[in-house]
């Protein structure tokens, strides 16, 4: 089993300018967490930090898929709807149809993957823009949710209960939910795939220049279908985790989650034009968003809309930073030749 740390230590690329955004995100995470710790009692504890993973496990998983898609230069607007659809399917399958939970989960993951692959196919084979294709996917998945049921369905299933109510006990009396553990495993696998497999490198190549990738003999079309399938899979897995977290399926769950996922990926330093960025950055991006929400919940006086404004400000900061780095690199490059 290769852990994330293990992979990072033997990272194929030596630290350089491209890593700056990730370090800035890490710094920001530490900074916001310290601010929280200083301002609020009981904030600066290991458990609060672990709670970031527990409360955002689904978003971490969704952000993984989004990172793959954005690295190829695409975008996936359907993730929030697919999360909701997956939750609905979990709830209906286990609680209405009384099917065994592992079977239901397997089915949900297959549906999600197939859904993503279908969108990828439409984008690749018919050259419909990703924005539009995944928008249609977003409508479709949300529409199916609402068609299945207009109301929340709670999950009453032994397996789900058992997984949701138990957690991994860590030294020092801390705990980590199995959902969070799943998310961390997904992160490790994804980092491995991106850095150490041909699929991962093809993702970067396609994002750098699709035309070149194709002429170099790389399967550009297949890679694009794969990333949308991965994103579909991650959304479905995120949906399962969300269902575990809330023990219910609801057609209005995860509205706007695509924005959170995109924001996390951007804050994590991945460039939206594709080809540049690291998965670990997206995870840090999710954690930064998580810290902000935690701070707001610790501070009873701040209204919820400040979260959105804060995310907007952060987005602006990071995008401006990327521009700064990008502009410097460009000016360096254009000097010779």
């Amino acid at each position: 089993m290769t852990t994330a740390a293990d992979v990072l230590r033997r990272s194929p690329v030596t630290p350089n300018r491209r890593h700056i955004p990730v370090f800035v995100t890490l710094g920001l995470l530490l900074l916001t967490f310290s601010i929280g710790s200083v301002r609020y009692e009981n904030f600066g504890t290991p458990q609060v930090f672990l709670d970031l993973f527990i409360d955002n496990a689904f978003l971490i998983v969704v952000a993984i898929g989004m990172t793959f898609v954005i690295l190829t230069g695409g975008i996936d607007l359907s993730v929030g709807s697919v999360v909701a659809l997956s939750g609905m399917l979990c709830a209906i399958g286990t609680s209405k149809l009384q099917l065994p939970a592992p079977l239901v989960i397997l089915f949900v993951l297959l549906v999600g993957t197939g859904f993503g692959a279908a969108m990828g196919y439409m984008i690749t084979a018919f050259q419909v823009q990703p924005f539009i294709t995944t928008l249609a996917g977003m409508f479709l998945a949300r529409g199916v949710c609402l068609t299945l049921s207009e109301n929340q369905i709670s999950i009453e299933n032994g397996f789900f209960d058992a997984v949701a109510l138990n957690s991994l006990r860590l030294p020092g009396g801390n705990r980590l939910s199995w959902g969070a553990v799943t998310a961390l495993i997904a992160v490790a696998v994804a980092i491995y795939v991106l850095q150490w497999t041909r699929l991962g490198r093809n993702v970067y190549a396609v994002g750098g220049s699709e035309q070149s990738a194709m002429l170099m003999g790389l399967p550009a079309g297949r890679t694009k279908i794969q990333v949308y399938a991965i994103s579909g899979f991650c959304s479905a897995l995120g949906g399962v985790l969300f269902a575990l977290y809330t023990l219910s399926g609801d057609p209005t769950h995860a509205v706007g989650m695509e924005l959170d996922a995109i924001a996390a990926v951007v804050i994590g330093g991945t460039v939206l034009t594709g080809g540049s960025g690291y998965l670990i950055g997206s995870v840090l991006g999710v954690l930064v968003l998580g810290v902000i929400k935690t701070i707001l919940s610790f501070d009873g006086t701040l209204s919820s809309w400040w979260t959105r404004i804060a995310i907007g400000v952060l987005l602006f900061g990071f995008i401006a930073l990327q521009r700064l780095i990008g502009a410097r690199r460009k000016s360096r490059r254009s000097a010779p030749s």
Binding site: F131, I262, L272, R308, I311, G312
Partner: peptide
């Protein structure tokens, strides 16, 4: 700032509703 439009306007999309 030369920011890609989809990202530049994403900022206001997120913050604007707030």
């Amino acid at each position: 700032l030369g920011i890609q439009p989809i990202i530049a306007t994403l900022i206001l999309m997120v913050a604007g509703r707030g």
